[in-house]
Nucleic acid binder design. Structure first.
Lengths: 349, 349
DNA sequence: TATTAGCACTCCCTTGTTTTGAGTGCTAAC
DNA sequence: GTTAGCACTCAAAACAAGGGAGTGCTAATA
C-alpha cells in the first residue's frame, strides 16, 4: 500500500494536481489548465506527454477522446495512500466539533452524524456500538401489574434494554425477589455472549421455583439480552449527494438514498469495516472497492471508534469519488476523539 | 365542502374522466382521448367546449397552448370530496395488511410505514402517539452501582421510558424504597400532563428525606416524564417519489427527501393533522393546501389512529397530486383498523 | 339550440445538421 | 528534454425543420 515508486516525482506532482483540480471542479482537467495550475512551469505539451504516460499506467483516463483527464479509482487510491502517509506524522489536534454532551447514546450518535454531514457536505452515517462484548451491569424484574413484568437490563456504557413480559399467572413477590437475586449474582459482570442458552437453562433449575411462569420469564430475559438490536444506524445529509452531479441522476440518487433509508446496506458496510480494520482506524473505499455495489460510483470513508471494553462502532462518510479526502479524514479523526472524550471520561471499572 | 352544484352532471363526468385519465398516464389529456374514454358518446368538439368551461371555472388548465388539460388543485379537491362522499356509505372491510404483531410499539409502527409504502408506491410516514395524555402505570428507581440509579417508567400501551441518573453520593437502600413507594402511590394512574412541577415540589417535601440526592433524583424523574420524546416519526419509501417525474427533478426530490430525513417538517404536518381532525379521520391536502411548503407539488393524505386514552398518532402518505386517492384512502382506513385491532385487544383498564 | 365536422393555428417535441471549442497526439524545431 | 504548431476528434451547444397532438372558431347539421 506504499506509494508506487515507479512514478517519477514529476508524474506524482502532476497526478496530484489533476486530482486536486478535479476534486474542486468536477470537470475533466486538461493540459493547459495544469500548466498554469502547477508550479512546475511546464508547457501544456510536456504535460500532455506525462499525462499520456499516466493514462497508460492506469492512473487517469479520458471520459472520451479529446476530453481532459479524470482520475481513475487507481489514481484516487494512490492519492489517498499518499495522504495517509503524510497525516501519519501530523499531530491530531482537537477541533470544535460542537458535540454536546447528551445522556442518551442515541442522541449523541444522531448528532454526531449531523455534525459530520454539515461539516463535510457529504452523506454520513454512524453505527451504534455492538453490544455482544458488552457486559451486564444490572438486571431487574419488576411487577407492573398482575399480568405484566418489566425487565430492565443495564449494560456497560449505560446502554439500557427493557421489555414488558406478559405472564399468564402472577408471580409471587418472594419469588420475584429470589429471581432478581439469582439473576444479578449470576449474570452480573458477564458479557452478553457469555450468557448462553445453556446458562439460562441452568438458571432455570437453580431457581428452584418450578413453575411455568419462571421458565417463561427466564426465556424472555434471555431473549431481551440476545436480541441483536439490529445494528442501529444513524444517518444524516443523505440529500447532500444531490450536490454532486455525477451521483445525482435519478438512477444513482434513487439507489444511494434508498440505501440510506433501508439501512441494510449500510449495516453491511459497517460489518465489513469492523472486520477489516487497519492501522489508522480509518479506511477508504474508492468506487468498486466498497463492499456494497450501490456505492460503486462513490467513495466511502469510515472510521472506527471504541467505547472501551471492545464496544466498537463505525462512523462513515459517503460522497463522490472526488471527495475532499484530506478534509474528510481530518474531520473523522476529530470526531473519533470527541467520542472518546465523551465516553471514556467516566473511567470504566 | 360538498360537491359544487354549479357544475352540470356532464361537466362532472368529464372532469372525473380527465382526472382519472391523468392519474393513470401523468400526461395532459386531450378532447379526443376523452370522447373515447367516457361513455358519454360525445364528439371531441363538444368535449372541447365543456373543457373550455371547466378551465374558465378553474378546475383544469393547460400547461401550454395546444396541450391537453391537467387538473388544477381545485379540480383535485372537488374530485376528492366526491370520493369522500361515496366512501361514506361503503362498509370498511378488513384486508390483508400483513401487519405482524410485535411487542415493541416502535417496531409495529416502522413496519406499518413499510407496508403502506409497498402497498401504495408512495412515500409514507407514521408518527408515534403522543404521550402527554397517557397515564403512568408504574415507576421504579433501582440502584445500579454506587453512583448510578436507573429509573424505569411504564406508561399505558406499554410505553417504557428510562434513564440513568448519576448521583454524587449513594442513596441508602431504605431511602430508595421509601422513594419508590412514594412515587408509585402518588403518581400511579396519573396522566403525564397532570404531573406538574408543582406536584414534584410537593413530593420533595413529602419524601421527608432532606438531602440533595433526593432532590436531584426527583428532578431527574420529572425530566424523564416530561421530556417530549420529540415526536418519533417512522418513514418508508421516500425514494418512491422518484417514480413520479413531476416530483423527481433535482430540486423537488432534494427538498422532499430532505423533509423525510430531517423529519421536522413531517412533525409539523402531524401536529397540524391532529389539530384539525375531520369526521372521517382522514384528511387530504392537495398541493398548496398542505401546511408545509415543501409539499406544494404533492398531495398528502393523512389518517389519525387512536390507541385509546386519547393517545393519537398519524399515518400519512405523500405522493404526487395525481395520486390514486381512492386506493390510498382505502388502504389508510384498513391500516387504521389494523392498528386498532393490535392495540385495543388488550382491553385497557 | 345543442352537437358536430372541418380547418387554421399554436407550440412542444423530436430529429438532424452545423458550429464551436476544449483538448489531444504527433511532428518538427529549439 | 522541452516546446510551438497544427491537424484531428468529439461532446455539447445552437439552430432548423417537420411532425403531431391539441386547441378555438366557424359553419353546417339534426
Amino acid at each position: 500500500m506504499a506509494v508506487d515508486t515507479s512514478l517519477s516525482e514529476r508524474k506524482l506532482i502532476i497526478l496530484k494536481a489533476i486530482i486536486q483540480n478535479y476534486l474542486e471542479t468536477g470537470e475533466p482537467v486538461g493540459s493547459r489548465t495544469l500548466s498554469k495550475y502547477t508550479e512546475l512551469n511546464l508547457s501544456s505539451a510536456t504535460i500532455r506527454n506525462e499525462m499520456a504516460d499516466l493514462e497508460d499506467l492506469g492512473y487517469i483516463f479520458q471520459p472520451h477522446t479529446s476530453a481532459g483527464r479524470i482520475p481513475s479509482d487507481q489514481g484516487y487510491r494512490l492519492y489517498v495512500d499518499m495522504l495517509m502517509e503524510e497525516k501519519e506524522q501530523e499531530i491530531t489536534q482537537r477541533e470544535n466539533a460542537m458535540l454536546e454532551k447528551a445522556d442518551k447514546v442515541e442522541k449523541v450518535l444522531q448528532q454526531a452524524a449531523k455534525v459530520l454531514a454539515s461539516n463535510t457536505n457529504y452523506a454520513t452515517m454512524v453505527s451504534a456500538p455492538i453490544n455482544s462484548r458488552n457486559t451486564l451491569k444490572f438486571i431487574q424484574l419488576s411487577q407492573v401489574d398482575e399480568e405484566q413484568i418489566v425487565a430492565v437490563i443495564v449494560l456497560g456504557g449505560n446502554v439500557i434494554k427493557n421489555k414488558i413480559i406478559e405472564v399468564g399467572e402472577t408471580l409471587s413477590n418472594e419469588n420475584l425477589l429470589k429471581l432478581n437475586m439469582l439473576l444479578n449474582t449470576t449474570l452480573n459482570g458477564m458479557s452478553i455472549d457469555q450468557i448462553t442458552l445453556g446458562l439460562i437453562a441452568r438458571l432455570k433449575e437453580q431457581a428452584g421455583i418450578h413453575s411455568e411462569v419462571v421458565e417463561h420469564v427466564l426465556d424472555a430475559v434471555a431473549e431481551i439480552i440476545h436480541v441483536e438490536d439490529d445494528m442501529k444506524i444513524y444517518t444524516s445529509g443523505a440529500t447532500n449527494i444531490f450536490k454532486y452531479p455525477e451521483l445525482s441522476d435519478k438512477q444513482s440518487a434513487q439507489e444511494i438514498i434508498s440505501a440510506f433509508e433501508e439501512k441494510q446496506q449500510l449495516a453491511d458496510l459497517v460489518t465489513e469495516t469492523l472486520a477489516s480494520e487497519n492501522s489508522h482506524g480509518i479506511q477508504v473505499y474508492i468506487g468498486h472497492e466498497a463492499p456494497v455495489k450501490t456505492m460503486k460510483d462513490c467513495s466511502v470513508v469510515t472510521a472506527t471508534y471504541e467505547l472501551g471494553e471492545g464496544m466498537k462502532g463505525t462512523i462513515g462518510i459517503i460522497g463522490p469519488k472526488r471527495m475532499d479526502y484530506e478534509h474528510v479524514m481530518k474531520t473523522l479523526k476529530t470526531l473519533q476523539s470527541e467520542l472518546d472524550a465523551i465516553y471514556n471520561k467516566n473511567p470504566k471499572e
